[in-house]
Design a protein around this nucleic acid. Sequence first.
DNA 1: CATATAATGAAACTTTGTTGCATTTACTTT
DNA 2: AAAGTAAATGCAACAAAGTTTCATTATATG
Lengths: 137, 137
Amino acid sequence: MEATELLKKHNLRKTATRTEVLKEYLSAGKALSHAELESKLGEHFDRVTLYRTLNSFEEKGLLHKVYDETGTVRFSLCSDHCDVSSHEDDHVHFHCTKCGNSYCLDLPIPEMNLPKDLMINDVYMVANGICKTCQRA
Amino acid sequence: MEATELLKKHNLRKTATRTEVLKEYLSAGKALSHAELESKLGEHFDRVTLYRTLNSFEEKGLLHKVYDETGTVRFSLCSDHCDVSSHEDDHVHFHCTKCGNSYCLDLPIPEMNLPKDLMINDVYMVANGICKTCQRA
DNA sequence: CATATAATGAAACTTTGTTGCATTTACTTT
DNA sequence: AAAGTAAATGCAACAAAGTTTCATTATATG
């Protein structure tokens, strides 16, 4: 789906920043952090606006958080059926400890028997290792 | 095991900061972040020393990282058999999205078929939800 | 096209984490 | 037990990451 269409679908006003940011995610094929976005988009966009853009994208179900042991929070495109009321980003993530990149894997999170006294909303899972590219290098 | 004993076992010099920090972890029963430690220990210990303490504890296999969607990195006590050469912290974690606390669960990480072209070192898993205490409140 | 509402940009600030260096402390060896 | 060495500490300065406030500008809707 295209940027403009995606924004409308999620009830977000179309602005220059949002369109550009969304395009980055649509073409990236991996999770992007605030810092990465900032360096990709150069000086054209305000730091603070970028933070706010990411937050509203997450809130509205366009992006979901991808995090790892470094404490860096990245974001990645959600699947079509995510929206404000339900994020269903129930797939495994991969984090390369060499290049630091993170990707969504097309792999569902396995079932488990979690303690009954905990109210579970969602489960997050990352496999840490070395990606294809870094294995060659 | 006691603080002094644990330090010796992991080839760490016994210092006031390390002993105190270890005691906190031994009694906490949950993961603690740098900020939490700082407020628990008051002004007695240097911020930087605390960072360095946590890092060396992790490196030596005394603590392992516990992280969540907020980007806060916490640490939690490792089991007995962890050391410099092998961390085997292969259990599921729980993160309460209300109070922000994180705990280790006594639950192994389920097996999966990960893509063969990725070199996997370890898998991290967090269940997000509301803890027992916060459910009552 | 006027208007209400939302998004932006800029400045200031807070929090979090790191680096370099001089001083102090812990452990080893004698 | 004293000396020597290697490691840990404390401090200052810095760097990075994230937040808040508020005035200005832009978007979408009637």
